[in-house]
Simulated scan of single mutants.
Amino acid sequence: MKQIKTVDAVGQVLCHDITQILPGQFKGRKFKKGHVVKEEDIPVLLSLGKDNLYVWEAVEGMIHENDGAIFLKDIAAGENLEFSEIKEGKIDFIAGIDGLLKIDVDTLLKLNSIDDIMMATLHNNFEVKKGTKVAGTRVIPLLIGEEKLEEAKKVVGENKIVSVLPFKPKKVGIVTTGNEIYHKRIVDKFGPVIEGKVGKYNCEIIGQIICPDDKEVIKEAIQKFINKGAELICCTGGMSVDPDDVTPTAIKECGAELVTYGSPILPGAMFLLAYYNEVPIMGIPGCAMYNKTTVFDVILPRLLVNERLNKADIAAYGHGGLCMQCDTCTYPACNFAKI
């Protein structure tokens, strides 16, 4: 790369994109890297404030910004992604499917700790639609030393920083507890809520069993769904600490491995998660019946990409786990439960 006066640049090859800004009208690329400067380009370039240009002159050991961006994309990109055209040395990562965005946050931090390199992403565990821009990367200078890119490759290793995982619809059993519902004193309002939320992911409801506040009956209902091939069981009702709320005890005693009873998410503190072998069992607190977005909406997508969560996964939601309960809910495009 060498610098020359713009008026002397006819026939030279630009080694970087040149941006044009028209306030309130346009900002974008006017000349593309690799463009051969023509006589008629000179007045335009001068009007853009380019009295001097950088034109291509190969330097051993130095990589152009566009090639650097491609290198970073290749080492960081996982599955189900598409990519933008490179503009001004930057390349965007775009979701190729509807799914759950997964970001290797630790590796991303290490990558961004290398001088002259950047990558920005949406939050980990963000639900995305096909076509959503999920990340962008570039090198900062016009040319970057090969050793920086080799350092980046070493830092990333076999990890893939950005991926989109597809949702895998499951067969869902609903166990609803409560004497007031079992004896038909009130109409169950929880079942339709669960059906609506899992239906968004094309899950199949294979049944709903309504139980009294009887631990043994609830255990039997859970086992019936296990035997019927349920891949996810949602238990509603009886999730508080009242003495007659026995749903948590029934789940714990049905043979499932308890992950947590309680979560640092509001609404949703009384949430329970357990696994019966590979089948997740969720104890869903009453807030999910009347709040638009709760712990259920946060955890469900991760279970539908077959992620097996542990206690630390749930505990991590404390930072950001407070819903602001806005008049107009924009979840997941908000700060709620982003880790």
Rank of each mutant, 00 (worst) to 15 (best):
V7Y: 10
D8A: 11
A9W: 05
C15D: 15
H16T: 07
D17C: 13
F26D: 05
G28P: 06
K30L: 08
K30Q: 13
G34P: 02
V44E: 14
L45C: 07
L53M: 10
E57V: 07
V59D: 04
H64C: 15
E65K: 07
N66Y: 08
D67H: 07
F71N: 02
D74G: 03
I86N: 02
E88W: 07
G99K: 05
K110E: 10
I117T: 00
L122H: 09
L122C: 01
H123P: 13
K129H: 09
K129L: 11
G131F: 09
A135K: 04
E147A: 15
E147Y: 13
K148T: 04
E151I: 00
G157I: 12
V164S: 02
I174Q: 08
V175H: 08
V175I: 11
V175Y: 07
I181W: 10
V193D: 03
G199P: 04
Y201P: 00
N202I: 00
C203P: 01
A221C: 11
A230S: 14
I233L: 10
G238T: 00
V241E: 08
P243F: 10
D245T: 05
V246A: 03
T247D: 00
P248F: 00
A250I: 10
A250L: 11
G262S: 08
A269I: 06
Y276Q: 03
P285N: 05
N291A: 05
K292R: 13
D297Y: 09
L304G: 06
L309N: 12
K311G: 10
A316Q: 10
